[in-house]
Simulated scan of single mutants.
Amino acid sequence: MKNWKIIGLLFLIVLSGCSTKTADTLEEDYTKIGILLSDTGLGDGSFNDSAFRGLEKARDELGILFTYEEAPDGNFEQALEILVKQENDLVIGLGFTAQEPLEAVAKQYPEQEFVLIDSVSALENITSITFKEHEGSFLVGLVAAMVSDTKTFGFIGGVDAPLIHKFEVGFQEGVNYILPDATLLSEYAGDFGNASLGKSIAEKQIAEGAGFIYPAAGFTGVGSIQAAQDKQILSAGVDSDQFFVAEKAVVTSMLKNIDVAVYDIIKELVEKGSISESAYEFGLADGGVGLAPIRVKSLTSEQKALYDEAVEKIKSGEIVVSTTK
Rank of each mutant, 00 (worst) to 15 (best):
F47K: 03
S200W: 05
L255H: 06
V175R: 12
I117T: 07
F171E: 02
A207N: 14
A51P: 01
T20K: 09
K304H: 10
A207H: 05
E113A: 12
P101D: 12
C18T: 04
G95T: 04
W4H: 12
G157E: 01
L284D: 07
G34S: 08
F114K: 03
I294E: 10
T25C: 10
L15A: 15
F47P: 02
T31E: 14
A106L: 05
L26H: 02
A207C: 05
V105L: 06
D264C: 00
A236D: 05
F244R: 09
Y307K: 03
A292P: 05
G317D: 13
N3M: 11
G45M: 11
G34W: 11
E77N: 08
K231A: 15
L80T: 01
G211H: 00
E302A: 13
V321E: 12
D149E: 15
Q99S: 15
D181S: 13
G209H: 06
M1G: 06
G17S: 08
D39M: 14
A210H: 09
F96N: 02
N194A: 09
T97L: 14
T25K: 14
V84C: 12
E302Q: 12
P162T: 01
M1T: 10
K107R: 14
I126T: 00
L55C: 00
P110L: 03
A145M: 04
S186G: 02
A182I: 07
Y280A: 14
Q205S: 06
I206P: 09
S16G: 15
D149R: 13
Y214A: 10
E281Q: 15
A279P: 07
K107A: 14
S19T: 09
L94S: 09
S16N: 13
I233A: 07
Y214T: 00
Y307C: 02
S148H: 08
E81D: 11
S253A: 13
I6P: 00
K132C: 01
A189R: 08
E309C: 02
N125M: 04
I164S: 03
A71T: 04
A195Y: 03
K248F: 04
I213R: 05
A261F: 11
G283P: 14
G43V: 00
S235D: 10
K166P: 00
A236M: 04
N176P: 01
T31S: 14
L197F: 10
D29Q: 15
G136V: 05
D149K: 15
G317S: 11
L12G: 05
G8L: 14
D230C: 01
S253R: 08
